[in-house]
Simulated scan of single mutants.
Amino acid sequence: MSVRRATTDDVPALIAFPDTPGVQNLPRDQVRDDFATGRMRPEWSWLAENDGRLVGRALWWGLGGSRPESLDTLDVLPEQPDPRSVAAQLLQGGRADLGQLPTYRLRIPVGERHGHPVRWRCEAAQDAGLTETLERLQYQWSPPAGVPQASTRLTFREGSDEEFVSLFGQAARGSLDVETRRALEETDEISQARDDLAFYLSCPGERDWWRVAFDHEHQPAGFIVPSATPYHRNVGYLGVLPDHRGQGLVHDLLGEITRIHAAAGAQRITATTDLVNLPMAAAFDRAGYQITEIRLVLQQPRVGS
């Protein structure tokens, strides 16, 4: 078996690679579109061959920079006797090109979390140094779920970038979001808030969707950042300010995001939350969002962790 970086001539075979059981395979049309738009690239892709036959692929993904942002696909044909070894070699090839490996986002169908296809991928990722794991739930809303009623407790208006920096910072205090808590171990609140602002400004969603939420006393209670991916509308970010927690306002904020997207004709709204963030999961359930998959986020340990 041999492992090498892909070339432009390899792209059709990488797109046509068979679906593999036990994981959530990317739709072939999406992979084709990602290569066409540069979100996936031959120079970011590695393949494994056995006697000239394609038996494995590793496809990294990005939004247009010089480096990919994540590993989106790691597949080995099921008949390979040691898929972990093949996958580890693909990741080693990627690391030789990229240096520090980007995050691996492993999508898993509900009920398949502990299956063999998940286990060997996680073991190969750990072999490559991606030893820090975060488990998340992926949700989806569609029109049959219904559109939530407008909040009777909050009003919404636009806000400036500086207002949102302040709001991101306040919402980070005591947050249940694992990535936010990890980030605050390395940086200060305002720096992290500015990073959050920059990230959501870089997403495909529109800036004029963002809203600050006010209570009946005209005090800021939270905020929403409806967003989008290259493929569909997305919940993005919502935050309840510390002094207003414990009142169930997360339902009002999520409802407003859903209303904004639904009013624009969205047929699909996706969202993700950490497995440990029970209030957010409850809000998704109440708003008619359905769990579509589990996501394992595997990455190299942060410096000092």
Rank of each mutant, 00 (worst) to 15 (best):
L90R: 14
L90H: 14
L90M: 12
L90V: 12
L90E: 14
L91Y: 02
Q92V: 00
Q92E: 05
Q92I: 00
G93S: 08
G93K: 07
G94Y: 04
R95H: 06
R95P: 10
A96M: 07
A96K: 03
D97M: 01
D97Y: 02
L98S: 04
L98V: 04
L98E: 06
L98G: 09
G99E: 00
G99N: 00
Q100K: 11
L101Y: 11
P102Y: 12
P102H: 06
T103V: 14
Y104Q: 13
Y104N: 02
Y104R: 06
R105C: 04
R105F: 02
R105K: 06
R107Y: 04
R107G: 10
V110Y: 00
V110F: 00
G111M: 06
E112M: 10
R113D: 08
R113M: 08
R113V: 12
H114N: 04
H114Y: 09
H114P: 01
G115P: 05
G115S: 15
G115K: 05
H116V: 05
P117V: 09
P117F: 12
V118L: 11
V118A: 01
V118D: 09
V118M: 01
R119D: 15
R119G: 09
R119V: 01
R119A: 15
R119W: 02
W120N: 10
R121P: 12
C122D: 02
E123I: 03
A124M: 05
A125W: 03
A125D: 00
A125N: 00
A125C: 08
Q126I: 06
D127E: 10
G129Y: 09
L130G: 02
L130A: 02
T131L: 01
T131V: 04
E132N: 05
E132M: 07
E132S: 12
T133Q: 05
T133L: 11
T133E: 10
E135Q: 00
E135F: 06
R136D: 02
R136S: 00
R136L: 04
L137V: 09
Q138R: 06
Q138N: 02
Q140S: 08
P143Q: 04
P143Y: 05
P144D: 03
P144R: 13
A145I: 07
A145W: 06
G146Y: 06
P148W: 02
P148E: 10
Q149G: 12
Q149H: 11
A150Q: 09
A150F: 05
A150C: 00
A150E: 08
A150H: 05
T152S: 13
R153A: 12
R153F: 08
R153Y: 00
L154T: 13
T155F: 11
T155V: 13
T155E: 09
T155Q: 15
F156W: 10
F156T: 04
R157S: 11
R157G: 07
R157K: 13
E158G: 15
E158I: 13
E158C: 15
G159H: 07
G159V: 07
G159D: 03
S160G: 14
S160P: 13
S160R: 11
E162T: 12
E162C: 12
E163M: 15
E163V: 09
E163P: 08
F164L: 15
V165K: 14
